[in-house]
Amino acid sequence: MTYALHVNGAEHHVADGWPGESLLYVLRERIELPGAKNACEQGECGSCSVLVDGLLVCSCLVLAESVSGCEIETIERHSALSRVQQAFVDAGAVQCGFCTPGLVVAIEDLLDREPEPDELTVREAISGNLCRCTGYGRILEAVRRAVADPRAAVPPTEPS
């Protein structure tokens, strides 16, 4: 099976793919974008979060070939640190970091839609992203910092 995927502004050709391969698997194993993580591969943890045509999805639940005409954005979309990424580093929101790419993608998506969310909104927005290390305290602090960041918005997507 051969098809193309449009990821972070670049075209990738997938040759000899198995029909059952998830978007997560193909990103990680076939086009060398391992930023999206695979903590459960059953839609429960959010570590694999990516945007498909602007919609936040668990890439483990999406068949790769089915999004061949779509615009896919992963954690690797930024060439410079976004304000959310910077806030995660500064606030101590990263421990093992396995949940981090998924959380960053989910929080950037939230702030795109709602630039100044209250804490409950943030908690609900990231309740599909499991983190086992932090207890979420520093992650919520990172969101507060990102909201307060003078940079008006997430930097525009740049090709990696």
């Binding site: 930023g35 990424q85 101590g92 990263v94």
Partner: peptide, 23 residues
């Protein structure tokens, strides 16, 4: 002092390699 993690930036960028990511 509250030093920042040296692996913080690669982890937020998805560039940090876990055992899962090795190839």
């Amino acid at each position: 002092e509250s030093a920042l993690r040296p692996d913080g930036i690669p982890k937020v960028q998805g560039r940090f390699l876990f055992g899962n990511d090795l190839w």
